[in-house]
């Protein structure tokens, strides 16, 4: 059972206190989007084995959504950061690359 540290309140919460929210950093496609763009937004998920960015909500705590960078295979957590972040922060990227030198952020 995972533990993640909520970047808002600093509590290291266990998975039972959290609500998962799927892949992070999706860009919403609204009425102007094409069928293909919309399909990708709604259905296409990266689901990688390795470095992944996820949404979690500190549901039984401060109620805030946050983002987590972790390895889906080893369950190593590289860091958590606030949801109001359109892309992984420099700190997070540095933490990932420290552990996974070959990894580069998606363009």
């Amino acid at each position: 059972m995972l533990t993640l540290t909520c970047p808002y309140c600093g509590i290291t919460a266990e998975e039972t206190e959290l609500q998962p929210g799927g892949e992070a950093h999706l860009k919403r496609v609204g009425p102007d989007g094409s069928d293909d763009e919309f399909e990708a937004y709604i259905f296409a998920r990266a689901n990688p084995r390795g470095v992944h960015f996820e949404r979690w909500r500190h549901a039984y705590g401060c109620g805030k959504w946050f983002l987590a960078a972790r390895d889906t295979a080893t369950l190593q957590v590289f860091g958590t950061y606030k949801a109001q972040t359109p892309a992984p922060t420099d700190d997070i990227i540095a933490a990932i690359q420290a552990a996974r030198p070959d990894w580069t952020p998606a363009p």
Partner: peptide
């Protein structure tokens, strides 16, 4: 402060969330 509560014995003010 975050995750703390202040009190004067009669009233208390608890931190629920960064904006609550």
């Amino acid at each position: 402060e975050a995750t703390r509560i202040t009190t004067d014995g009669s009233r208390s003010l608890g931190w629920m969330s960064p904006d609550e």
